[in-house]
Simulated scan of single mutants.
Amino acid sequence: MNDKMIEILQVIESNGRIPLPTLAKMVDMTEDEVTSILKKLENDKIILSYSAVIDWSKVEKQEGVTAVIDVKVTPQRGVGFDQVAERIYRFPEVKALYLMSGAYDLSVVIEGNTMSEISRFVSEKLSTIDTVISTTTHFQLKKYKHDGVVFDQGEEDRRIVVTP
């Protein structure tokens, strides 16, 4: 991995929709060279997807509920946490799953339409897995910043400053 590849990754991580000509100018390369690098990074599974950050709280009837669930599990001999993690991330409600250090082993981010839907997921799907010892569910109340994007910054004060 060379410096140009890393530079391209940094740019598209902050703006995955940047036009190719602009990206090429930013990294001082031709469009063909940038296209070739992007294809290589995609084929090597370094670029996994291009996504948008959406403020669902501003979309009527689509806000939903997000929860972070701390999960304590018994690791399996020979596979550690990988097998139980795979079983958990296959549920469609799971949006993210992380192996953590500290009091809990896994951190699961799930989305649902209601708190009841999330509680059913925890009680009927997650806690029934035989290696799951305990769970702690935290409901997201408000999103301030996600993937480097600040939500609801408010409008800039356009009043003229008057001083004596």
Rank of each mutant, 00 (worst) to 15 (best):
T35M: 05
R90L: 11
K39F: 14
T66L: 08
V162M: 10
N43I: 15
Q140A: 15
G112K: 04
E111P: 00
L48D: 08
T137H: 00
E31Y: 07
K142H: 10
K25N: 14
N2K: 13
S51A: 13
G80D: 14
E156Q: 08
V11N: 04
K25T: 15
M1P: 02
S51C: 12
F91T: 05
A24M: 07
E155I: 13
T163A: 13
M29H: 03
T163S: 10
S57Y: 09
L106V: 09
S134E: 09
K4N: 13
S101L: 07
T135L: 04
E63N: 05
G112S: 08
T137L: 01
L9I: 13
Y50H: 08
I110A: 04
M26R: 14
G64W: 07
T137I: 14
V132H: 00
P92L: 07
V94Y: 01
K40C: 14
E86T: 07
S57M: 03
V53F: 10
L9F: 06
A85E: 12
E31K: 07
G64C: 14
E86M: 09
L99R: 06
E33H: 08
T131I: 03
R158W: 05
K95F: 07
A85S: 11
Q153V: 12
K143W: 06
E7P: 02
R120L: 03
V27D: 01
N43K: 12
D105L: 04
P92C: 07
Y89M: 08
Q140Y: 05
V11A: 14
Y50T: 13
R87P: 00
K58N: 13
S14E: 15
I129V: 13
T137S: 02
M5F: 10
